[in-house]
Simulated scan of single mutants.
Amino acid sequence: MKKIFYVIFVTAFLNAAAQDKVSNGTKNNNPIVKGWYADPEAVIFDKMYWIYPTFSARYEKQVYLDAFSSKDLTNWVKHEKVLDTASVKWAKKALWAPSIIKHNDRYFLFFGANDIQSDYEIGGIGVASSAKPEGPFVDYLGKPLVDKFYNGAQPIDQFVFKDQHGQYYLIYGGWKHCNIAKLKPDFTGFIPFDDQTVFKEITPQHYVEGPFMFIRNNKYYFMWSEGGWTGPDYSVAYAIADSPMGPFKRIGKILEQNTKIAVGAGHHSVIKLPDSNKYFIVYHRRPITENHADSREICIEEMYFDENGYIKPVTITKEGVNEHIIK
């Protein structure tokens, strides 16, 4: 009798667990990792998915960056402290919004640090490098790459972008201003534009922070976050242009909250699967059960386009996406 009861109990437990994990035939994969994280940059290196987020905590506790890797887009391995302020002498707090790129068989991680409020403080955008995507990353320059407010843009939320001609750009900016600059091939500084300016402003309407860019069908899609990062109006909008320089005319929002699931959906990145035409948006949001500003989690949804190339509004879900192993 005890054996029969045990079997019934275990079967019921496993069925309940399965129900908790499956909804409408799809696994509940959002959030995709445990813990509070934000500002995720998703990339693909050698058929492996990687995500580099901000550790979501009080500024004084943001002294390191973790990374996550996955072979199938649903099961993630945590790589702790791929970058730490111990290896960046000028960085003391507020390590934010990493952006990573592989160049000449090395990995370059761009990051914001110290949340500077004026040109007279130490901090801004830095660069760290490593021979492996999981680090450890060490300070590449020994000083910030950008440490001043050019065109009114706070030096945070950096994104490194490679255009169709092989030119690398740094696109960045908080405080409702966005700049673009041409990086030197060794990432030690910048190449002036033809008019000898270094930082050009490309701020679209309603821009706040969190820039991201990708190319699709020879068009440049520029995306950014709007609203306040602690508020329910945090969201993602976009524009399309023929050049990374724009001009970028705002088309509209494509990602925002669903008060039945989460609020404050924003600060994202986009990946395209190399073996298909699928696109995914990786972003952070705040669960409706949480009120603290730093209680943010990383989620992923598939992103679709219409016949004219416009991005369709993204529906945020608890299900997320199914597994996909890159062939």
Rank of each mutant, 00 (worst) to 15 (best):
K184Y: 01
Y234C: 05
Y172G: 02
P136Y: 06
L109Y: 12
Q117L: 14
K162M: 13
F161W: 13
Y221C: 06
T197M: 00
I215S: 09
T188V: 04
P185G: 01
P155C: 10
S225R: 07
T230A: 15
N114H: 08
K219L: 08
H165T: 15
T230S: 14
Y238I: 07
P192Q: 03
A128Q: 08
K162T: 12
N217C: 05
G152D: 12
Y140S: 00
V127P: 05
D115K: 14
V160P: 12
P136D: 00
H177S: 15
G174Q: 12
D163V: 06
K143W: 02
K176S: 14
F199H: 05
T188H: 09
I191L: 14
G124S: 06
V208R: 14
F193H: 01
L109M: 11
F190Y: 02
T230G: 15
G166L: 14
S235K: 09
S130Y: 08
G189R: 05
M213T: 03
D115V: 09
S130Q: 07
Y238E: 03
Y238G: 03
A181F: 02
H206C: 08
F161T: 08
Y221T: 10
D194E: 14
W224T: 04
M213N: 02
F110L: 13
G126C: 00
S130P: 04
G124R: 08
S225C: 06
K200F: 07
P232R: 09
L109P: 09
E134I: 11
G152P: 13
V160I: 15
N151D: 11
G166I: 14
D195L: 05
W175V: 13
N217Q: 14
K176Y: 10
Y234K: 00
I156E: 13
A239G: 03
T203E: 11
L170N: 12
A113M: 07
I215Q: 08
I240W: 09
T197S: 07
L145F: 09
I191H: 05
A241T: 02
L145Y: 11
T203H: 08
A241Q: 00
Q158R: 10
A153Q: 13
K143Y: 05
G174V: 08
F190G: 05
W224M: 02
G189A: 02
Y172P: 07
Y220L: 10
Y172T: 04
E209V: 06
F199C: 08
F190N: 02
Y150F: 15
L109N: 10
P133A: 07
Y140C: 06
P211N: 08
P144N: 01
E121R: 12
S129Q: 00
F111D: 10
F214N: 06
S118Q: 10
R216H: 15
F110K: 10
V208I: 10
E121G: 12
F190R: 03
P185W: 01
L183T: 04
V198A: 04
D195Q: 02
L141V: 06
F212A: 09
Y120T: 15
G142T: 07
Y169G: 11
Y140Q: 07
F187E: 06
F222D: 05
D147I: 08
D233F: 01
E134M: 13
V208H: 13
A128G: 09
A131K: 15
V127C: 03
R216W: 11
Y207A: 07
G112D: 10
P144L: 01
P133N: 03
F161M: 09
S225E: 05
H177G: 09
S225I: 00
I191M: 11
L141S: 06
